[in-house]
């Protein structure tokens, strides 16, 4: 995707700037953008390492297991067809917990594993089952407890209250996920 978007952005910008007479701004921006990228990376450097360290502790305790178990009723509601597929249920719960805790790097491999487990029971291999569709939609909804990256960016840009968006993010996430789940439940009956 970016192999198409990236060059288009750059080419359009330069041509537009030539016509609009902004080429000096564009020229300056080339070097400013490189500096900004370094600044943001440095910001992430601290936050990502810190969060990764804390989550490593969480991974080593029974906390993850407890959270996974507490998701059971939720998983039963979302994936009624997987009632007898304990392995799929467990992988789905673990993927959800990893997403909630912001362990993006752990969530994806767990998610892919769950996909393969569910695919085994799929009789039409080229079409998604209801459960797989639901699982993908849930993964496209960002169910993260603490939006660490956003808070890090806010902090680096001089925000007075970098974390003062958490509640807003929670509400918006829940609304988005609910809409995703409801539309999946409705659409799976018709398409």
């Amino acid at each position: 995707m970016l192999n198409i978007i990236w060059p288009i952005f750059i080419i359009i910008s330069v041509i537009y700037a030539l016509i609009a007479g902004n080429i000096q701004h564009v020229s300056n921006e080339i070097f400013d953008s490189a500096t900004s990228a370094v600044e943001l990376t440095l910001t992430f450097f601290g936050t990502i390492c810190l969060w990764n360290g804390l989550m490593e502790i969480a991974k080593n305790t029974s906390l993850i297991n407890k959270l996974t178990k507490s998701l059971k009723p939720f998983v039963h509601f979302l994936f009624p067809e997987l009632k007898n597929n304990k392995q799929a249920q467990e992988e789905i719960s673990m993927n959800m917990v990893a997403n909630l805790l912001g362990l993006g790097n752990a969530a994806t491999p767990l998610g892919l594993k769950a996909m393969q487990t569910m695919q085994k029971e799929n009789s039409e291999k080229e079409t998604l089952t209801n459960s797989i569709a639901m699982f993908i939609v849930i993964n496209t909804a960002s169910m993260q407890l603490i939006p660490t990256n956003v808070i890090a960016i806010r902090s680096s840009l001089g925000s007075q209250e970098p974390s003062n968006i958490i509640l807003q993010v929670w509400i918006a996430t829940v609304i988005a996920a609910t809409v995703g789940i409801i539309s999946t439940k409705i659409l799976m009956k018709r398409f």
Binding site: K125, A133, S142, T173, V179, G180, L187
Partner: peptide, 19 residues
């Protein structure tokens, strides 16, 4: 390796829009 993703894109984009 699925080819037919059915309504998944629609539902996911609806969720994004709602968010």
């Amino acid at each position: 390796k699925v080819k037919k993703i059915r309504f998944v894109l629609v539902a996911a984009l609806l969720a994004d829009l709602a968010g």
